[in-house]
Computed example of a mutant assay.
Amino acid sequence: MDDRIEPFTIAATDAQLGDLRERLLRTRWPREIGDNGAWQAGANLAYMRELTDYWLNTYDWRAQEAKMNALPQFRTTIDGVPIHFIHVRGKGSNPTPLILNHGWPWTFWDMREIIGPLADPAGVGGDPADAFDVIVPSLPGFTFSSPLDRPGVNFFETAHLWVKLMDRLGYERFATQGGDFGAMISAMLGHAYPDRVIGAHLHFIAPIKPPYPEPSDFEPHEYAWGAKTQTFMQDGNGYMQIQRTRPQTPAFALNDSPVGLAAWLVEKRYAWADVRDGLETVFSKDDLLDTVMLYWLTETYVSSARYYYEARPGNAGPVHDRVPVVEAPVGVLQFAEDVMPQPRRWAERYYNLQRWNVAHTGGHFAPMEVPDLMIDDIRAFFRELLT
């Protein structure tokens, strides 16, 4: 079996960038009916025009590419699945291996603000005893973990792949952290491999199998969370239903139109982040376009969207029926402004819950929105487990 790990450098071709520019210049803009200033019907036309003008005339992919390439990146293949990952060695006496898991529509680059401080805490005024060896894989089918041509790769399967990746890197036991699908991967690791997982830190919680949260699980002070989750499932999950059932159909449009892809991805940043003071108080135009470019250049909208399709009920998943479902120690940093906050009472049954905190600033993309808060909570959780 070929278990080589090879250094990797991002290098878009001039032809790719020239083709992108031509497509942007030829954008055929849709009509916008009524007042969509608050993005009620989806991506806002005026903002997408503004962002596209910036994309054409100001955004510098080569500068952003160089920033990405400053991080040590690698590629390997596990069970026929190409895997791209960042691997930053910690600066401390005994760094703890930590695998950070992103979600959709994230990329590895969403972790950039927390990688350095977690690997080198002394470099930002922290304690070197808190150092981690930080591993940030791109999920299968996302950006440079491509092309993914075989079906069946979901977050359950990804957890198994990550154990093999950590074996390949020489780590027997390791910590894990994640949000969105990344939280479900981290939970699956703690479910299937409690002997290997030091602990799982989650900033988004969702069941990987029954039992599911019930309305009676919400305490009075959590009722607003239950209402928010219900609203999201009624009004905000159209993208999910499409990607769970027919991901191939929108791929024809989103693999062909860069502005179409941008609208699909940027709208999720607006809808899911804590943008109460405005989208660009959280994400700069460069931040938004970096994400779009990583999906565009790798042509991975369809394989990333298929992650939902492969997670449908009935696909291979849980490995036991014990309670708690996740037996490895779990720490939760719940963001009240996230899209689906869940009740603590359910979490205490579902996880081997060792830590619970609630944050009232920041949202779904917390490593980008409030990196300092994330860093502090991750360090505190694992410090308690390791001392």
Rank of each mutant, 00 (worst) to 15 (best):
M1G: 15
R4L: 14
T9I: 13
Q16A: 09
D19W: 09
R23T: 11
L24Y: 05
L25E: 15
W29C: 10
R31Y: 05
E32R: 12
I33P: 06
D35W: 04
N36S: 04
W39Y: 03
W39I: 13
A41C: 09
A43I: 04
A43M: 12
N44E: 13
L45C: 06
A46W: 04
Y47G: 03
Y47P: 02
M48A: 13
R49F: 08
R49K: 15
Y59N: 04
Y59G: 08
W61F: 01
W61H: 07
Q64Y: 05
N69T: 11
A70G: 12
F74L: 03
R75P: 01
D79E: 15
V81S: 05
I83A: 05
H84Q: 07
G90K: 01
G90Y: 09
P95T: 14
P95H: 04
T96G: 00
T96V: 08
I99H: 08
H102G: 14
F108L: 13
M111R: 01
I115K: 02
G116I: 05
L118E: 03
A122T: 04
P128N: 03
P128H: 08
L139D: 00
L139R: 01
P140M: 05
G141I: 06
T143I: 11
T143L: 08
T143D: 03
F144T: 02
S145G: 10
D149V: 10
D149F: 00
G152I: 05
G152Q: 12
A159P: 11
L161C: 13
W162K: 00
Y171H: 14
E172L: 14
R173Y: 01
G179M: 09
D180S: 06
A183C: 11
M184L: 14
A187W: 07
A192K: 10
V197T: 11
G199M: 07
A200I: 06
H203C: 10
I205S: 11
A206Q: 10
Y212N: 04
P215E: 06
P215Q: 09
S216G: 08
S216T: 15
H221G: 14
E222W: 14
W225H: 08
T229M: 06
T231N: 14
F232H: 09
G238A: 12
Q243I: 02
R244L: 11
P247H: 06
P247Y: 05
F252I: 00
F252T: 02
L254Q: 07
L254Y: 02
N255K: 07
P258T: 01
W264T: 03
L265R: 10
A271L: 08
T281F: 02
S284C: 02
S284A: 03
T291D: 15
V292E: 03
V302D: 01
S304A: 15
A305S: 06
Y309P: 11
Y309K: 03
R312H: 09
V319I: 14
V319P: 00
R322V: 10
R322F: 14
P324G: 07
E327W: 01
V330R: 07
Q334P: 00
F335A: 12
A336V: 02
D338Y: 05
V339E: 07
M340I: 10
P341V: 10
P341A: 04
P343E: 03
R345N: 11
R345S: 13
W346T: 12
R349K: 15
Y350T: 05
N357H: 12
V358S: 05
A359I: 07
G363N: 00
G363V: 08
A366D: 00
P367K: 02
E369Y: 08
I375P: 05
D376C: 07
F381H: 04
F381W: 06
F382W: 12
F382R: 00
